[in-house]
Every structure is written in C-alpha cells, then in structure tokens.
C-alpha cells in the first residue's frame, strides 16, 4: 500500500534515540527488502520490516503505532541475511522498549486463561513477559 510520508514530521531525535538504543546504524539500510521477504510474520504486519527501517530513518514517530515491532519475535532470520549487516531484531527491541519504558505493558499478564496457565511452559511465559511487559 502506498503511503505518504510527510518529511516535515521528521523527528531526528527519534531516529537518534532508536539508533542509540538499538546500536544499529539505521541510515545504512539500502531498502533492498531482503528482511521483509524472509520474515515469518510479514503477512501479519501492518508495516513490513524494511518499511519500518525507512520510516525510522526518516524520523517518523508514527511507527510507534504499528503492530510490527510486537510481532517481531527476534527470530534473527533477517539479521543473518541483511546485506548491510543490520540487525532488525535490535531495532524492533528498541521500539518496544521505548513504549515499555513509559510503564505501558503491551499485554495484560492477568489475561491468560486458567486453562492456558496450567498448560503453558515456563519458557513461553518468561519469554512473552520479557518482550511485552516493562
């Protein structure tokens, strides 16, 4: 879907913040799309991973409203394929952290049903809470 980016909304502080938090030189992205092509969650995403890179590069804080960073499961598929050796899993983590550090959880840990609670392995619960709660 075509999307109009308003450059007057460019927030360089946002780009700097994400660059620093992720430790990734986001502006190096060449928009090849390899990351999006291999992402196992791309069909569920509202904005695909390479678009996220572009939007962050252009300081578009609106990416904070996207589902993409929450869907990224740090599977590192894109990490091993990026021709620029960029690590998108770290960019997603940085975006998640910006939200979580504002003391806003992405999931309600009390919403797990009793049936699921008795079934879920610890590894899933710990992993989920680490990624979705601050």
């Amino acid at each position: 879907m075509a999307q109009i980016i308003k450059l007057k909304d460019k927030n360089t502080d946002f780009l700097e913040k994400i660059t620093e938090l992720s430790g990734e030189q986001i502006t190096l992205c060449e928009q090849c799309g390899t990351c999006s092509a291999g992402c196992p969650f791309v069909s569920e995403m509202d904005i695909n991973p390479s678009q996220i890179m572009r939007l962050v590069m252009l300081g578009q804080e609106s990416v904070m409203d996207s589902k993409t960073m929450w869907l990224c499961a740090s599977c590192f598929t894109c990490t091993v394929r990026c021709p620029r050796k960029l690590d998108l899993s770290k960019v997603s983590e940085a975006l998640r952290q910006v939200k979580l550090r504002g003391a806003i959880d992405e999931i309600d840990i009390k919403e797990i049903s009793d049936e699921e609670a008795l079934k879920l392995p610890t590894i899933a619960v710990v992993g989920s809470f680490r990624k979705f709660t601050g």
Binding site: I112, A117, L118, L120, T122, V126, F129, R130, T133
Partner: peptide, 17 residues
C-alpha cells in the same frame, strides 16, 4: 489448586518477570 508451576502462572504471573 494443584501444587505446580501452572498455579503460579494463574495466580501470580508476575513471578516470571
């Protein structure tokens, strides 16, 4: 209740943080 980890997921999920 049952004496297992699932009971804590149910009642005290925050422990896994």
């Amino acid at each position: 209740l049952t004496p297992d980890v699932g009971t804590f997921t149910k009642l005290f999920p925050s422990v896994f943080r």
